[in-house]
Simulated scan of single mutants.
Amino acid sequence: MEEDLAFLDNASAAYEDIEVNGAPCAPLPFDRPKTGNAERVDAPVYNPVTHDVLEVSNIIYERHADGRPPDRAYWVGRKLKKCIFGVVKECTILRFRNDMNAPWEVTAQKAAVKIMSWQKIRDLRHIEDPQKEVAAMQYISKSGGHPHVMGVLDVLQDDEYLLLFMPFCSSGDLFGFVQQAGRFPEPMARYWFKQILEGLSHLQRMGVCHRDMSLENILVDEYRTSVVIDLGMCLRVPYDDDGKVTDVSAGTLRRLIGPLIPCGKPNYISPEIFKSEGPFDGFAIDLWAAGVILFIMLVGLPPWEFAGEEDPRYRMVARGGLERMLESWNRTVSALATDLLQKMLREDPRQRLSLCEVKDHPWVLGDDSNAGSFGAPSNEGWRG
């Protein structure tokens, strides 16, 4: 109950409340990632459907120091996409069956594994640190995880690779669905937006600012569930402890974060991050990006190239002209949706809606039962 009250205090806090809560400070560090020892083998695998036993290569599991059998293994399969530090591949999860003739059994469960080279991690650490992303994912998963934020199944390592095993999302990213549809009808946009807000709610409960929210960083699984991914740029938000700095577990109000180098996709970066001249509220910049996500779902186009005075479309919206801009584009959006977008995309974070205000907005509370259904986008761009 106290945890829920603390969350609501932060989810409803105005910028001014946070501004007077203490001097801006640096984000808190994440703990180092916890990893197990990876064992890679070829082994016979039993198929319980066909009752066949197949000799399978490239099975990875955790080798326990005490010799106890592994809980599960991963049969690594096809490549899904390249990443900066290596590759992402699809896996089939295997169950240990304690049979010398076929020690593993196929299951219907899938996973994805990000295979990252230690050499590339060392060479490119100045660009991005994947160990921080792994640590952040473990951190947000420690309370049992959340269906709308990508969690961790296992983190293993050997001399060559860091291996991050995650749930598998079969239907690509939400950007692909918008591309396929052109733009979403409002009930469909509302259906997905509510899930995105639930993902943001979990991050706020854990005291985490994502900092790179975008349609490309929201995957969709076969059950029409969206999952926020890519925590490589996230920050652990500082909280106040009677003038000192603590974390979210104290149940207090968060503090502003001192200026940092801008990061994220230009369309989604908030104006205060784009300028990078003063402190910012980690939760407010994620809600700004959520507003851009909703805009693109409803309109089919990004509102601007970047949130700076040099961009004429941004200038128009910043001065309250979002409705006029949509009329000039001949893109009809309901009055309630326009009202929500304008209030989420206010230039001054002091005037922007909080998470609670967004979730309580009449448009968000509307009916999404006619959201309809659609298949995976044909290009499935995230797979490369």
Rank of each mutant, 00 (worst) to 15 (best):
E2W: 13
S12T: 14
D17W: 09
N21M: 11
G22D: 14
P24D: 04
C25Y: 12
P27W: 10
N37W: 12
R40T: 07
N47L: 04
T50I: 05
S57E: 11
Y61K: 02
F85D: 03
F85R: 00
V88T: 11
T92M: 06
F96V: 11
R97T: 09
D99A: 12
V106D: 00
A112D: 04
V113A: 09
K114I: 13
K114D: 08
P130M: 05
Q157N: 11
D158Y: 11
L162W: 06
L162R: 09
F165V: 13
F184V: 03
R190H: 05
Q195N: 06
S201M: 07
E222T: 05
R224H: 08
V227G: 01
D230A: 12
D230Y: 10
M233P: 01
M233Y: 11
C234I: 08
P238A: 08
Y239K: 06
D240T: 08
K244Q: 14
T246G: 08
D247T: 08
D247I: 03
G251F: 07
K265M: 02
K265V: 00
K265N: 03
P266D: 12
L287N: 02
F295Y: 13
W304H: 12
E309A: 13
Y314T: 05
A318P: 02
R319P: 06
L322K: 07
R331T: 15
A335P: 04
T338R: 15
K359Q: 10
H361N: 14
V364M: 01
D367R: 00
A371F: 09
G372H: 03
S373T: 15
S378Y: 13
W382N: 06
G384L: 14
